[in-house]
Simulated assay, not measured.
Amino acid sequence: MSTRTESFNNPIKLIECPRDAMQGLHDFVPTALKIEYLNLLLQVGFDTLDFGSFVSPKAIPQMRDTEEVLAGLDLSSETKLLAIVANLKGVEKAIKYKEITYLGFPFSISETFQQRNTNASIAQSLNTVEEMLNLCDKHNKEAVVYLSMGFGNPYGDEWNTDIVSHWANELVQKGVKIISVADTVGVSTPEKIIEILPPLVQQFPNIEFGLHLHSTPQQRLEKIEAAFNAGCTRMDSALKGFGGCPMAADDLTGNIATEDVISYLNLTGTQLNLDMEKWGEAMMVSARVFG
């Protein structure tokens, strides 16, 4: 594997995603343990922590205590909080909390997955995005829209790069400023990453594009390298690569492992300014969270 050794021109935003890592666990993680784990991650120095979600507890029971978890977080660091919402009810809950900076919405370019994940069509979800943006403006929040199934889907729904570009354009026209192209089920490849991301960045220079990739351990490093070679400046990942979307498949494909992202960026000479002692403590506590 080749490695770029120069520093990147743009600052890299690392988004740590314990919410995505935990949401598919069958055994409920006690609220106090979630708080302990998240408070350590908050001290590491990531740009953003994807900490919880305001969704139906029937759909994602692991996240039913998001409001209680939020109340126990130490927000003395500069790390910002992101919460996932799946409908306007979730948006209306999340915007009440001044501690939350970002509301993340999964907008799938696969009709099958949009119905499966949010019980709404793509057309209905586009309307939800528009209403979410209006509420975010009124309540001083920022919206992050995930272009879910952005690298393909397991349902046989049509996918190509023109479809990705079309829906990115639709979101930009609605006023979305941050778009994260999301893999969801691990079908991204280095070739697809390099094919998709640079044209989007070129077409929409004022939009912040990120990547939310899922991967088997064997493919992580090649995807990380492709992402940063493609100009990625916003990367989602999770400690040890835990997680996956329980609404997408029975066999979860884990997240990109944060430690692999850190290792790669260190090799490039990128200054991350992370507290690796706190990171080590979080790694130890993760054993109690994930078993």
Rank of each mutant, 00 (worst) to 15 (best):
L33T: 03
M283F: 04
A257T: 10
V289M: 02
F290G: 01
P18K: 02
Q219V: 10
N206V: 08
E36A: 03
S2I: 11
G210A: 07
A168L: 09
D50V: 03
L33N: 05
T258I: 12
Q124Y: 11
D236T: 00
L82Q: 14
S108E: 03
Q219L: 13
A120Y: 00
E259F: 00
M283Y: 06
S53V: 00
L133S: 06
A86N: 08
A182I: 03
G231L: 08
A287V: 03
S215E: 09
L135Y: 00
V44M: 06
N127M: 12
T270D: 15
E131T: 08
G210Q: 11
V187I: 09
M149I: 01
G175Q: 02
D275F: 05
G156I: 07
S188W: 08
F8R: 08
I163D: 11
K93V: 01
G186S: 09
M276R: 09
Y97K: 09
G52D: 15
V185P: 13
R234P: 13
Q23E: 15
G24M: 12
K174P: 15
Q114K: 09
N127V: 13
F105M: 05
K34C: 02
V172L: 12
A94G: 05
N153Q: 07
M235P: 08
I109Y: 02
D157F: 01
L126A: 10
F28Y: 09
S77E: 15
T128M: 07
T118L: 07
A168G: 12
E191A: 13
L88N: 12
K80A: 11
F204S: 11
D137I: 00
L221H: 12
F242V: 10
D74S: 15
A32M: 07
L213M: 10
L147A: 06
S121T: 15
A21R: 04
A238Q: 07
M22F: 00
K58T: 15
K192C: 01
I95F: 00
A168K: 13
I60R: 12
P154E: 12
S188R: 09
F209S: 07
K89W: 05
F28G: 01
F51W: 08
A32G: 04
